[in-house]
Simulated assay, not measured.
Amino acid sequence: MKSSTLSLKVALAAATLALASGCATGPDANPRDPLEPFNRGVQRFNDAVDEAVLKPVATTYVDVTPSPVRTGVTNFFGNLRDLWSSVNAALQMRPRESAENLMRFGVNTTFGLAGLLDIATEMGIPRTRIDFGQTLGRWGVASGPYLVLPFFGPSSFRDTVGLVVDSNADLVGDVDRVANRNSLYTLRVIDTRAGLLGAGNVLEGAALDKYSFTRDFYLNRRQSQIDDMIDKGIGLGNGE
């Protein structure tokens, strides 16, 4: 799919640069984050882009867009992700979650105006968010070092590979007209950032070291997600 090209280049370039800079870390480096000097530099870059562009645009979006419209946008992109979550659940041999996510996609696409309305939630059909990085972890692929990707943010070597696969499976990439496809990408980025405005304010006010807080939260959350999958599945590997 067309959306995979940029993600692939960014992910591979970041991984290559990180590997090249890995020898610069000291003996006191966090064992889960041996590339910390590189990662901190990338986070500073991402924070600068966020402060200059993403946060102001997202704030304006929230201020000028009616709440029902924003909810519809969030529902639309969430509906697209449900289909890929269904595929990943199937890859993990989790038939219940696969069927639920597939049912959500079918119901919301058919009866919810292409996903603008979340009819499935009103019907009591649960949503389970699953990406390919989690699927890799589910089958015992080690996380590898923590890695901050330009524009994409917190990741790991395993999740970077997962990001490339997720990008190839992105239904937005199937939109034929470049202008429409790029508009959807842009809208999704704005919608995602708008949903994080509150969390960002809390993080800036509470964390003494924003980098360490973000890293530990991300790695612990990802491991918790994978452990939960193993508990519910047939339990191969531990993802680390």
Rank of each mutant, 00 (worst) to 15 (best):
M93K: 01
S183I: 07
I190A: 14
F105A: 07
E36I: 00
P56N: 13
R188T: 00
T71H: 12
P66W: 02
P95E: 02
I226Y: 12
N75A: 06
D228C: 06
V161N: 10
L196H: 12
L102G: 15
K232N: 15
A142R: 15
R215K: 12
A13N: 09
G144Y: 14
A90E: 08
A199P: 03
D227S: 14
P27D: 14
A29T: 15
Y146Q: 02
S167F: 01
N220K: 11
R181E: 02
N101T: 11
F151R: 10
G133M: 10
A14G: 01
Y146G: 05
T128N: 09
E100P: 00
L6D: 04
D209R: 14
G200S: 06
G173N: 11
P31G: 04
L171P: 02
A18Q: 07
Y218P: 00
V87F: 10
L219C: 01
G239I: 05
L196I: 10
A206Y: 09
G133A: 11
V62H: 04
A18R: 04
R221A: 08
D227I: 06
T60F: 07
L203Y: 01
D131H: 03
P66N: 01
T214P: 04
A29C: 08
G112C: 07
L8T: 14
G205E: 10
G195I: 01
I130P: 01
S67Q: 14
C23H: 07
S86P: 00
I125D: 00
A114E: 03
L80K: 00
A20P: 13
T128A: 03
D50C: 06
L197Q: 08
F38E: 05
I226W: 09
D209L: 15
E97Y: 10
K55S: 12
P68G: 08
A206K: 04
I190C: 09
T59F: 06
D63T: 10
V148R: 13
F111S: 06
N168T: 11
Y211W: 06
G237H: 04
A15C: 12
L208Y: 14
I226G: 06
E122L: 13
V73S: 02
A48G: 13
A120Y: 09
L19T: 11
G26S: 04
N180L: 13
L171M: 09
R94T: 02
V10W: 11
G115W: 02
A142D: 13
G237T: 08
L113P: 03
S183W: 03
F45I: 08
D131P: 05
V49T: 08
A194L: 11
K55V: 14
L196M: 15
L17W: 03
G173M: 10
F213E: 13
K55A: 11
T109Y: 00
T60S: 05
T109H: 04
R215A: 02
F151V: 13
R177E: 13
S21D: 11
A90Q: 03
T186Y: 14
G195A: 11
A89M: 06
L91W: 08
A179D: 09
R44P: 03
G78K: 06
G162W: 05
F77S: 00
S4E: 00
Q225S: 09
N238I: 10
K2C: 02
K2F: 03
L116T: 12
D166M: 07
N108E: 01
R104W: 02
F151Y: 15
N180W: 11
S21V: 13
Q43W: 01
L219K: 02
L102R: 05
Y61F: 11
R81F: 07
G239M: 07
V62Y: 09
L54C: 08
V62G: 01
T74L: 04
S212I: 08
